[in-house]
Each structure stands twice: as C-alpha cells, then as structure tokens.
C-alpha cells in the first residue's frame, strides 16, 4: 500500500456575472413568411371629441366624453367605463355568462373544467363547492351567435395548420446556427435535443445569475447571446416568437410550474 499518495484536483468555479460577448454584425435577415405584423384594433372615430376605448373583442366600443389624448381617467371613471363596455357586450351576448373574478381561489376539486366552461352566474356558489350548472344541462342546448360558435371544423383545421407552421419555423431556427444569427456554428439543438431541458413551463422564475425574474424569452435571449454567440433578439422579432412557440410546443401536457428550479 503506497499510502499518502494523493491527487489534488483543483475545481474552480466562475462566479456570478455576465460573460464575454462578441458582437458581430448580424448576417442578412431573410424575409420570413410568419413575420406578419400583429393586427391592430380599428377604432371607430370619436364623434364627440373624446377618446374611444374598445374591448378586447375588437368590436364593442364606447367613447369617453371629455377625455383628451394624454389625459388619465380617475379610478371611478375607469370603473364606470369598464362597466359600460361589459354591459354592452352582455347585451350582445345574452346567453353568455361572465365569471367575475373572486379573490379567493376555488378549493381544489370544487370547480371542474366543464363548470368553468359553462360559466356561473353566481360565482360565490362555485367557490362554496356548489356548481350552478351541471355539465349535462350546459351541453344540452349549445349557445349560438358569438365569435367562437361561428367557427367551423375547417376553421380549426386552418388554425391548427397555421400553429404547426409557426412551431415548425421555430424548430428550424432552433436547429440552425445561421438562422439564430450565431457566429460560432453552435445551435440550440446541440445541447437541447428535442428542446429537452429548456423547461418553458417553469417561467417566470428568478434567475440568480441574471439577478432578476426572467421570462422564457429572456432565457432564450441569454442563450442566443451566450453559447450561440449571436445578437439578442427584440421581443417582437419573429424569430424569438417562433423559438418560443417551438420550445413550448415540445412540452405539451406538462403542467405549468412557474418559479420551479
């Protein structure tokens, strides 16, 4: 036994900080099919010199008299405007129930998927574990006349195909150092086959190394800047959006777990 023979290994750890980044001019960006800008709301003109405010449905609107550009409403006034918009929307959709938010979250198991889809006129009941409409009555007569009810099977097929196309664009970018704008030949798939270990379901989460809460896109950008040595992408850049789509699509069915490490 040759005692006392030792190997000393020095393990060194780089501490917290940003890493060296070489900014190189970004290679020419090809026009991408999925890069269509998002549609804007088209507002009706203000007839009384006020400001027009529209609901997220893109159809229901109201004009706030006397509200000039740059001016801010009081909280009371803002609540009044919201109430007025929702009242209009409910007049147009008499059959639809709008679940008012309750600060208490429903106890686990008291509200099923079918319940929330059917809606509830008296939300406090749902919270107390007494769903107001049973799934079978909800399904018995289906509602008509609203946006979603006007979609047909074919529409959903088109939506599906569009979504898959978007994800496919993301897959291509994820697998291509060139499309990522990388400068050292490295692409994401080299370390993340099938986007494994990207854990999109864990965002937002605090990233100690960034000293802040990060969104998935912050992490994607960090990885573009670092292992890939490209230039970070603007939040609206179609490539960033497509990357997000691909990464999320790979985790279909995994429960959301924001904040998980």
């Amino acid at each position: 036994m040759e005692s006392g023979k030792k190997i000393i290994a020095a393990a060194l750890i780089g501490a917290v900080a940003g890493a060296t980044v070489v900014y190189l001019k970004f290679a020419g960006q090809s026009p991408l099919a999925y890069a269509t800008p998002l549609l804007k709301h088209r507002l009706p003109p203000a007839r009384n010199g006020g400001t027009v405010i529209q609901l997220c449905d893109g159809a229901t609107s109201t004009e706030v008299r006397g509200l000039k550009p740059g001016q801010r409403m009081s909280r009371e006034q803002a609540l009044e405007v919201s109430r007025e918009l929702m009242a209009q929307w409910q007049r147009k959709h008499p059959d639809q129930h709008w679940i008012m938010a309750d600060s208490r979250s429903p106890a686990i198991g008291t509200q099923t998927q079918a319940d929330s889809a059917a809606g509830s006129a008296t939300p406090s009941n749902a919270v107390d574990g007494e769903p107001t409409a049973s799934p079978s009555t909800a399904a018995a007569q289906s509602q008509q006349g609203d946006t979603y009810a006007s979609f047909h099977k074919r529409d959903f097929m088109i939506f599906q195909a569009e979504t898959e196309n978007f994800v496919e664009q993301g897959r291509r970018i994820f697998h291509s150092a060139k499309l990522l704008g990388g400068t050292i030949g490295v692409s994401c798939d080299m370390c993340h086959p099938d986007a494994a270990n990207t854990h999109p379901e864990t965002y937002p989460k605090y990233q100690e190394q960034l000293q802040r809460v990060a969104l998935l896109r912050d992490m994607i950008n960090w990885c573009i800047e670092n292992p890939v040595k490209g230039k970070t992408l603007d939040a609206n850049d179609p490539r960033l959006r497509a990357l997000e789509a691909y990464i999320l699509a790979q985790r279909k069915g995994v429960p959301l777990a924001y904040g998980k490490h």
């Binding site: 036994m1 040759e2 023979k5 030792k6 190997i7 000393i8 290994a9 020095a10 393990a11 060194l12 750890i13 780089g14 501490a15 917290v16 100690e208």
Partner: peptide, 18 residues
C-alpha cells in the same frame, strides 16, 4: 457565496494501489 457558486479545492485520495 456558498459552493458551488464559487471556487473550491477538492482533495481526492487515490484508490489504494498495490
């Protein structure tokens, strides 16, 4: 900082050699 976010020395005693 606490390891592993820093740098540390590790001593590995080699397995017995005849």
């Amino acid at each position: 900082l606490t390891p592993p976010h820093s740098f540390q020395l590790v001593e590995v005693v080699q397995a017995a050699v005849e």
